[in-house]
């Protein structure tokens, strides 16, 4: 479904991604793991067109993403939940959701369906996004992403900075989103948070995807984690 072949990308003159080759299959939770600064966030930004690939090809459902403007990517049903949540902080919960609905002209039925998943948000529709707790903000970012009824959701460190109880909740929501039919490309630094829910895992090292394996094979191979993550 999502197919990256030898993708490279740079910030100004500095090349950050060298050879990112991977694919995400329909309905899977695919985890992208790597150390701090390995290029995980940049990979997601490149998929979203927010950083322009200067090498390689990206395609989604057989549509080339290389030629699309960044604002056309969400119309392909790819949703993005960035690191740090990227909420419209001064807007209300309801307005953040409304921006999410704009992409594909989705109406109230989608909104109601999404809010069913997040009862805590439903109670806080008028509240400004920046006044929510960390976990609620993460939920809002995920709810906003679901508004485009995505086939693929890019999740960048959704549990970063959250309490353990919240981490559990975000994990449950991630599984729910998958069950709704979306494939998920999940970036994490903490392996324990994701291994139990992931189907496959790709390791990225200094801008290169080193290998892609099934999650179960990682569980039986701690040496792999030491090598790529230093744990």
């Amino acid at each position: 479904m999502l197919e990256l072949k030898q993708v490279g990308a740079a910030y100004d003159q500095v090349q950050v991604l060298f050879d990112v080759s991977m694919n995400v299959k329909p309905g899977e939770i695919h985890c992208l793991l790597g150390r701090n600064g390995a290029g995980k966030t940049t990979t997601l930004k490149t998929i979203m067109g927010l950083v322009t690939a200067n090498k390689g090809t990206l395609s989604f459902n057989n549509v080339s993403l290389n030629g699309l403007s960044a604002h056309q990517i969400p119309k392909q049903k790819i949703a993005y939940v960035p690191q740090g949540r990227g909420l419209f902080t001064e807007l209300s919960v309801a307005q953040n959701i409304e921006v999410g609905l704009m992409v594909r002209g989705k109406g109230t039925s989608t909104k109601d369906k999404v809010l069913e998943l997040f009862p805590r948000l439903k109670e806080r529709l008028k509240q400004r996004a920046e006044t929510l707790s960390g976990g609620e903000q993460q939920m809002l970012a995920m709810a906003r992403a679901l508004c485009i009824e995505p086939d693929l959701i890019l999740l960048d460190e959704p549990t970063e900075g959250l309490q353990p109880s919240m981490i559990q909740l975000i994990r449950d929501v991630t599984i729910k989103m998958r069950d709704e039919g979306a494939a998920i490309l999940l970036v994490e630094q903490r392996i324990d948070a994701v291994l139990s829910i992931a189907d496959r895992v790709s390791f990225i090292e200094r801008g290169v995807i080193a290998e892609t394996v099934t999650a179960s094979s990682v569980q039986n191979n701690p040496a792999m984690l030491t090598r790529y993550l230093g744990v």
Binding site: G49, L50, G86, T89, L91, Q95, R104
Partner: peptide, 21 residues
């Protein structure tokens, strides 16, 4: 107005929601 404010607050995420910044 909502489009303008979203663009102001986070232009990348506005783009990621289909807004032609």
């Amino acid at each position: 107005g909502l489009i303008m404010r979203a663009t102001q607050l986070n232009s990348d995420m506005a783009t990621a929601h289909g807004i032609p910044v």
